[in-house]
């Protein structure tokens, strides 16, 4: 019996839609961004289009990471994973299927986010909305979601409880980068600030909705993603129940 990636993805993606998690997540992402857009258009705040994308990413990225992670955590917490993680092929197929789900979720969030920015711009929110920014936004969302998803997946594989994982991810995506940002702002040590600025745990949450990353940051991001994927596959192949 070989796990069918396409069937697994179809079934579980449609479940994310049916149980309302994706809708709730996207509403959580949209609500602050729509509110900020409204305030901008009402001249209540002097923000621009990048603030709209930042507010979209604030909760949106956390939700986008937690959706695919929910499926993996569900299977490991209920131990139904033991009905899937049998042959080496099925173990790899399971990882691939969940990575595909994470990809589609990131695409979904990136598309909704891009659409929101276009609509906000059309309605009169100030600021340049270049094609390069939109493209950078799409790529950033994809890289962030995949990286943090695989990081959370790895923690599940090492037996960490879901509550602890969600707390860590929430801290990393919402708070931790602010601490690192303060260090960068206040430190005169260029080596330390250079390390922090090129650390994915910092640059993804900070830059995702603001600017395309630098070539070095993209390179580090891709390498980090590949290393995490390698570790998840390796651990999945060995894990015993």
């Amino acid at each position: 019996m070989v796990l069918n990636i396409k069937s697994y993805v179809n079934y579980n993606l449609s479940e994310l839609f049916k149980n309302g998690f994706l809708i709730i997540g996207i509403l959580c992402a949209l609500a602050p961004a729509v509110l900020v857009s409204y305030l901008i258009l009402s001249d209540a705040v002097a923000f621009n289009i990048k603030h709209v994308s930042n507010f979209f990413c604030m909760l949106g990225m956390l939700a986008a990471v937690l959706h695919p992670l929910y499926l993996v955590n569900r299977d490991y917490a209920s131990k139904t994973i033991t009905l899937i993680n049998n042959s080496q092929k099925n173990r790899v197929n399971y990882v691939v299927a969940n990575v595909v789900i994470a990809f589609f979720v990131s695409l979904f969030y990136a598309s909704i986010g891009a659409l929101l920015l276009i609509v906000a711009k059309q309605l009169g929110v100030p600021g340049e909305l270049e094609a390069s920014f939109l493209f950078g936004f799409l790529v950033n969302v994809f890289l962030l979601v995949m990286t943090f998803f695989l990081f959370g997946y790895l923690l599940i594989l090492f037996g960490m409880k879901s509550g602890a994982i969600y707390t860590i991810l929430t801290a990393m995506l919402l708070f931790f980068h602010n601490i690192l940002g303060n260090i960068v702002y206040n430190s005169e040590n260029t080596i330390l600030t250079g390390i922090i600025e090129n650390f994915p745990g910092y640059f993804y949450p900070v830059m995702v909705g603001s600017n395309p990353l630098s070539p070095l940051q993209y390179s580090i991001g891709v390498v980090t993603l590949l290393v995490l994927l390698f570790l998840v596959v390796r651990k999945s192949k060995k894990i015993e129940f």
């Binding site: 697994y8 179809n10 009905l83 899937i84």
Partner: peptide, 8 residues
């Protein structure tokens, strides 16, 4: 349904 579907 689920454990049939995921195996195609």
């Amino acid at each position: 349904n689920y454990f049939s579907a995921i195996y195609g």
